[in-house]
Every structure is written in structure tokens, then in C-alpha cells.
């Protein structure tokens, strides 16, 4: 209950600043452009696809690339959404309002996390309207669509938990944004090195760490609980770190 109150305030603050609107508009515009060019491609390829025995459907050709691009765009958008979460409150000295209210650190962190996740869900819903518009003319593979959406939500929630933690570390929102972006990019590309390492074990570990590696199967419609647990563990780790860091504010001053 308290978490929802805090999440609601976070959302409200986001929408009171032009940033949220700009982010919503810009991402929607870029994704719409990608969507259209992908659709164009599909129409061009249609004669050849007809000849193939097991041709990929419209969901594979048009919709899945959109979600992969969205994941990449979100990697740049999330740091901007999360950078202010704690650092701004610390700078404006509004944290003491939360600290002196009868709420726990866990509630504060979860409230902020849920607030941003809610915003991201809104973005994903808006984005999903585009593929859904195709349902009027073609048959979509809804199972695949659900799988890729779930994967995207989990991955972005993981991004947010990193961003939230970075925001608790600093008083400067821009520092939080840059370091969040750095970590996310590193986790994104970490398996590039992995693929070049000859040692089987080492490359396996690096590949396991890569966020992208756990997203890709869901993008193909493969729902594996170990991927889901990877994200859940990832999120829990960074949320716990954030709670502890916020508590350290009180302990160390």
C-alpha cells in the first residue's frame, strides 16, 4: 500500500517534468520508424517467403526486431529515468521527509522501483499498439509476442534496478546516469569477449552474465525458467544493495 503511494508520487514527478514526455515521444517516434521500415521489408520479401516451405511469419519478420531495438533503446533511456530517483532527493534534502515518516527503507526503495517500472510498462503498452494494429490484417503469433514482451519487461526491470542503485550512490544525477549506462553497456557486450575466449568455462561464465543472452531465447519464444530467475536474482541483488546504501545514509550521515 505504502509502496504504491510512493510509486505514484514517483510517476507524478516524472510526468510533471518534460523529460518523461520527451522520452515517451522520442522512443515512440523511433520505434514507429523502425516498424514501418520493417513492414516495408516484409512486403518486399513476401513473394520469396511464399515459395518457402516453413516461411517465417509476420511476427518473426516485423515484430521481433522491433522489440530487440526497443531493448537497445531502453538501455539508453533507463539511465535518464532512474538518475534522479535518490540523488535528486538527496540534493534537494527531501529524503528526510521519507526518513522521518513511519516507512521503512525497503518501502522507499520498492516504491521508487515500482514507480519507474510502471512508467516502462506504459511505454511497452504504447509500443505494442503498433504490432497489434497488424492483427486487423494478419494472424499474429500471440504466444511469441507475449514471450518477447515478458522478456523485455524483465530485462528493463533489471536495468532499472541498476539505475536505482547507482542513484543511491551519488548526489549528482548525471553521474548516476553515466555510470548506469556504463554498467548496462558492459553487461550487454560482456559475451563478445566470451565468444573469443577459448577456455570453455570462462566463456560460459561471461556468456551467462550477459543480459542479452537471457533475452534472446525469449525473443524466439523459448521460455526458460533459468532466464527468468537470472533476471529476478539480478533485480533482487541490486534492490537489496540500494536498501543497504540508503540505510548507510542514516548510519554514516
Amino acid at each position: 500500500m505504502m509502496i504504491l503511494t510512493l510509486a505514484q508520487r514517483e510517476l507524478r514527478s516524472l510526468f510533471y517534468s518534460p523529460l518523461a514526455w520527451a522520452i515517451l515521444g522520442v522512443t515512440q517516434l523511433i520505434l514507429a520508424y523502425l516498424f514501418l521500415s520493417q513492414l516495408q521489408e516484409y512486403i518486399r520479401l513476401q513473394p520469396q517467403l511464399k515459395m518457402m516451405a516453413t516461411a517465417p511469419g509476420i511476427t518473426d519478420v516485423v515484430i521481433l526486431p522491433i522489440y530487440s531495438s526497443a531493448a537497445f533503446i531502453m538501455m539508453m533511456v533507463v539511465p535518464m529515468l532512474t538518475m534522479r530517483l535518490v540523488s535528486d532527493e538527496r540534493r534537494n534534502k527531501t529524503l528526510s521527509l521519507l526518513f522521518s515518516a513511519p516507512i521503512s527503507m525497503t518501502e522507499i526503495i520498492l516504491g521508487k522501483f515500482v514507480g519507474i517500472v510502471a512508467f516502462i510498462l506504459l511505454m511497452i503498452i504504447m509500443m505494442t499498439l503498433m504490432p497489434l494494429s497488424l492483427a486487423t490484417a494478419a494472424t499474429l503469433d500471440f504466444g511469441l509476442l507475449m514471450s518477447v514482451i515478458l522478456g523485455l519487461v524483465l530485462m528493463i526491470a533489471a536495468f532499472i534496478s541498476v539505475g536505482l542503485y547507482m542513484s543511491t550512490l551519488t548526489i549528482q544525477p548525471s553521474v548516476a546516469a553515466v555510470s548506469t549506462f556504463g554498467i548496462l553497456l558492459l553487461l550487454w557486450i560482456i559475451d563478445w569477449a566470451g565468444s573469443k575466449v577459448v577456455d570453455e568455462n570462462a566463456s560460459g561464465a561471461l556468456t551467462y552474465l550477459s543480459m542479452l543472452r537471457h533475452f534472446e531465447p525469449m525473443g524466439k519464444g523459448i521460455f526458460n525458467t533459468s532466464d527468468v530467475f537470472y533476471y529476478l536474482l539480478f533485480i533482487a541483488t541490486f534492490l537489496i544493495l540500494s536498501i543497504r546504501r540508503l540505510d548507510a545514509d542514516r548510519l554514516q550521515g
Binding site: 510512493l6 534537494n92 527531501t94 528526510s96
Partner: peptide, 23 residues
């Protein structure tokens, strides 16, 4: 506190409503 912990982009009503809820 020394510096009032107010959210500058909230109206007085919205802010106090939030404070009432978290208390």
C-alpha cells in the same frame, strides 16, 4: 529540517496529500 523537504513541482495540496499518506 533546516531546509523544508518540499517537492517543488507539486502543488501545496498534492504535497500535503502525499505527506498525509506516508504518515
Amino acid at each position: 529540517p533546516e531546509q523544508p523537504p518540499v517537492y517543488r513541482d507539486f502543488t501545496v495540496d498534492e504535497y500535503l496529500d502525499f505527506c498525509a499518506r506516508i504518515n
